[in-house]
Amino acid sequence: MKTFRQSVSAVWHFYRDSFRNMTWGRPLVWLILLKVFILFAILRVFFFKPAMAGLSDEERSRIVGERIAGRQPEAGEPVPGPETYLP
């Protein structure tokens, strides 16, 4: 247990001291944070809402199924053979 704690502590100190002592890398970290903020707090929230957010899997299957199948056939409508479509 002690060894585990020591390892976690060593890793924590490694990262903490490294970030504190950064020189030319510091602007890069700010750049990454700025980018992540723009991506997730602005673009994702205001511009990129998933089109099917909040729908159940059944509803998604139905919507995509209708889009792919194109239309719902009438009851008893015959299935056309290939000759219908051949030029």
Binding site: G65, Q72, P73, V79, P82, L86
Partner: peptide, 20 residues
């Protein structure tokens, strides 16, 4: 491609019937 289109449309109609 015309034959593939015909088979593709059969697949889509079959899908439609299957789901309805």
């Amino acid at each position: 491609v015309a034959e593939k289109m015909a088979m593709g449309r059969e697949a889509l109609i079959a899908l439609s019937i299957y789901r309805s």
